[in-house]
């Protein structure tokens, strides 16, 4: 029986240590990434670890300047906290609504920009304006646009019967939907650019062959474009979903979670607990719960998406 060089090296080498020191070449790599890793640990992992630890304490700033260990008290409170569950429900509607609307807006825009014309490159650049505009500017602008006394958007909505005398933002039944519209308006360009980039990478031969076979434009879109956009859609849906789930600034500047808590999503609830009610440890509990929920949701989402890919 021939023995290969690898087998020989395995047989002749000393027993392998569980935690072997890296070789020289690997050390170069570790040296290069060490500063970046250090930054990640300091700015990301440490705060997360601190937040998790804080969630097991009792720290009400009006009573103490330092936290005391309280075990699972915060998590027990969370289970019975109606405000938390209502905020979670709103966060779910907000996240799904934002991503869905972003996709609905982004797809036709990307299809339109995928055509060759003189103004498409200009429009592609201009398309990104809402995405790159600071959230604070977007928020204040839309707040005024929706105002019943100053807002042109309110005026138009009122003309077509979609708004009454009061701004959509001042009505607990419509405020969250109005915010979702603003959020999607801001996020859709990012989605559109990602879809457009993928569309441009689809080989033209596929469409030519389909056309020769008599496929209509609609059939080409359904059978070629959409399936090939699937992967980018899954990834962008997850990325924008995470951004939406964690968002706070847009809602805070426009409505501060009101009216009557109608737009109080989890980020706003957490902020209020920390900065207004000074319940630092319970705010940390909410933060950890948000992180855990997002990890579970992302895992399930990717699993389902991957299973559907395999089935296809």
């Amino acid at each position: 029986m021939a023995v290969s060089a690898n087998d020989a090296s395995i047989q002749s080498s000393k027993p392998r240590r569980l935690f072997a020191l890296p070789d020289r070449r690997s050390r170069v790599g570790y040296a290069f990434i060490a500063p970046a890793l250090l930054i990640v640990v300091v700015v990301s992992l440490y705060p997360i670890a601190f937040g998790i630890w804080l969630s097991f304490t009792d720290w009400y700033l009006l009573q103490s300047l330092t936290p005391t260990f309280a075990g699972l008290a915060g998590y027990r409170r969370l289970l019975g906290d109606a405000d938390f569950w209502q905020s979670l429900g709103r966060s779910g509607v907000w996240t799904i609504g934002t991503v869905a609307l972003e996709y609905v807006i982004a797809m036709p825009v990307a299809l339109l920009l995928n055509r060759r014309s003189r103004i498409t490159s200009f429009l592609t650049g201009a398309l990104l304006l809402p995405w790159v505009t600071p959230t604070i500017v977007v928020a204040y602008t839309w707040r005024w646009l929706f105002d019943s006394q100053f807002g042109t958007v309110h005026y138009l909505l009122q003309r077509v019967g979609l708004a009454g005398e009061r701004s959509l933002l001042a009505d607990p039944k419509t405020a969250l939907w109005a915010l979702i519209l603003v959020s999607a308006w801001k996020g859709a360009p990012f989605m559109a650019v990602a879809l457009l980039a993928t569309m441009k990478s689809i080989p033209g031969d596929l469409y030519e062959a389909a056309a020769v076979d008599g496929a209509t434009r609609r059939r080409q879109f359904l059978d070629i474009t959409l399936p090939l956009l699937r992967q980018v859609s899954v990834v962008m849906g997850l990325v924008l979903g995470i951004l939406a789930f964690y968002s706070f600034d847009l809602v805070w500047v426009i409505t501060k979670g009101g009216p009557s808590d109608a737009t109080q999503i989890l980020g706003v609830y957490l902020f209020r607990l920390f900065f207004e009610r000074l319940e630092l440890s319970y705010a940390a509990t909410i933060g950890v719960a948000m992180l855990a929920l997002l990890i579970v949701f992302s895992a399930v989402y990717l699993r389902v998406a991957s299973r559907q890919d395999n089935d296809a």
Partner: peptide, 10 residues
């Protein structure tokens, strides 16, 4: 009409 959400600015 938007009084229930008004602060100083408007």
């Amino acid at each position: 009409p938007d009084t229930p959400t008004y602060d100083r600015e408007p």
